[in-house]
C-alpha cells in the first residue's frame, strides 16, 4: 500500500556549492507528489537523495518511518524511472524487466509470469516485444519498458525523474494518464519530478514547488494556483498579472490576478484603461495583452470578442479574484 517518505533538514553539497538547503518534506503513504521547479533548482537531486544515489551532508531521510539515510539504494525498497530511461542496452525487453526479479532470486516461472504481467500493465504486448532488443523500440515503447522494469518489483515508493521529457506530446499525455491510473490502482507512493506545470497537474495529488535548492510551497494544485506564496510561485505556476500593492491602494506588497479573471468592459471593482498590444489565438480563448501605466496586463477573453490591435479598452477585475502576496 506504499510507504511514507520524509526528509528532515536535508542538506546536499556538490563541489562546494549547496544544491539542497535544509529541505524538509513529508509524503504520505500512497500519495502522489510532484516536485516542480525550473531546471537547476535541485529537484533531481532531491529525488536522488530519496533513492540513496546521493548521500546528504546533513539531515535525515525516512522511508516508512525508518531512517534510511545511510542505507544503500539497493536496500531501500524504492524504484525509479530515469530521465534518460537507463535501459540496459545489452539485454532484451524480457531481461530488462526481469533484472530486479532475478536479483531477488525468484523462481524462473514466477519471473516470467510477473514480467508478462508488468508489460501488460504498461500496455506492451508481451507476445510481440518480449525478446526485442531495447534499441529497436520507439521512444514511447522504451518509456513503457522502463516503467515496467520499475513496477515489476512492486515498489513501495516509485520515483520518476522527468520520465516523459523526450517524447511526443500525444504519447506523453497518454502515458501520463496511464501512470495516474496505475498509481490509483497499485497504491504505491509516487514522487514525480518535472519542470513542466502541465505535466505536474496531470499526475500530482499534491505539488511541491522548488527554487534554488529550497521548497517554496507545498499544496494541492488549486491551492497553489489560487493562493501562491510569492511572486515566483504565482508566475511559475500558471500565468499571472503581478501588480504592486500601491497601484490598487494597498500599503505594500503585490497582488496577483489570473488572466482569466481580467474582464474587458464590465462593472468591476478595479478599473483601468489601456491599449491592446498583442492578441494570441490559444484554441479555447484569446490571450490579450494590454499596456497600461507601465504594466503589460494579460487577459483571457472569449474567442468572439470584437477586439483588434491598437484598440483602447477598459478592463478590470473584482476584489474577490485578487490575491495579496508579501513580496
Amino acid at each position: 500500500m506504499g510507504l511514507s517518505v520524509a526528509l528532515r533538514d536535508v542538506v546536499v553539497h556538490y563541489g562546494g556549492s549547496p544544491i539542497l538547503k535544509n529541505i524538509s518534506l513529508s509524503i504520505e503513504a500512497g500519495e502522489g507528489l510532484v516536485v516542480l521547479g525550473p531546471s537547476g533548482c535541485g529537484k533531481s537531486t532531491l529525488l536522488r537523495t530519496i533513492a540513496g544515489l546521493v548521500t546528504p551532508a546533513g539531515g535525515r531521510v525516512y522511508i516508512g518511518g525508518v531512517d534510511v539515510t545511510n542505507t544503500p539504494p539497493d536496500k531501500r525498497g524504492v524504484s525509479m524511472v530515469f530521465q534518460d530511461l537507463a535501459l540496459f542496452p545489452h539485454l532484451d525487453v524480457f531481461e530488462n524487466v526481469a533484472f530486479g526479479l532475478r536479483l531477488r532470486r525468484l523462481a524462473e516461472a514466477e519471473i516470467r509470469r510477473r514480467v508478462v504481467e508488468a508489460l501488460e500493465l504498461v500496455r506492451l504486448d508481451s507476445r510481440v516485444f518480449l525478446h526485442r532488443r531495447v534499441g529497436q523500440l520507439s521512444g514511447g515503447q522504451q518509456q513503457r519498458v522502463a516503467l515496467a522494469r520499475a513496477l515489476v518489483v512492486e515498489p513501495e515508493v516509485l520515483l520518476l525523474d522527468e520520465p516523459f521529457s523526450h517524447i511526443d506530446l500525444d504519447i506523453k499525455n497518454q502515458l501520463l494518464e496511464e501512470l495516474k491510473m496505475l498509481h490509483n490502482r497499485l497504491g504505491f507512493t509516487m514522487v514525480y519530478v518535472t519542470h513542466d506545470r502541465f505535466e505536474a497537474v496531470e499526475v500530482g495529488d499534491k505539488i511541491a514547488l522548488m527554487r534554488d535548492g529550497e521548497i517554496v510551497q507545498v499544496g494541492r494544485p488549486m491551492e497553489i494556483y489560487r493562493m501562491p506564496k510569492n511572486r515566483f510561485v504565482a508566475e511559475f505556476f500558471g500565468e499571472a498579472n503581478v501588480i504592486s500593492g500601491e497601484a490598487v491602494g494597498l500599503a505594500g506588497g503585490h497582488v496577483v490576478v489570473r488572466p482569466e479573471d481580467v474582464v474587458l468592459g464590465g462593472d468591476t471593482t478595479y478599473r483601468l484603461k489601456g491599449t491592446v498590444v498583442d492578441i494570441t489565438f490559444l484554441w479555447h480563448y484569446l490571450k490579450v495583452e494590454i499596456e497600461s501605466g507601465g504594466y503589460i496586463y494579460k487577459a483571457y477573453v472569449d474567442l468572439d470578442t470584437p477586439i483588434s490591435l491598437g484598440d483602447v479598452v477598459e478592463f478590470g477585475w473584482s476584489a474577490r479574484d485578487m490575491y495579496v502576496i508579501n513580496d
Binding site: G52, P72, L103
Partner: peptide
Amino acid sequence: VSRTVVEAARILGASEVK
C-alpha cells in the same frame, strides 16, 4: 556505460559489485 544505467541497477537491488 552511462551513470544512470548503473544507478538503475543499484535501485533494482544490485550491490555495487553485482
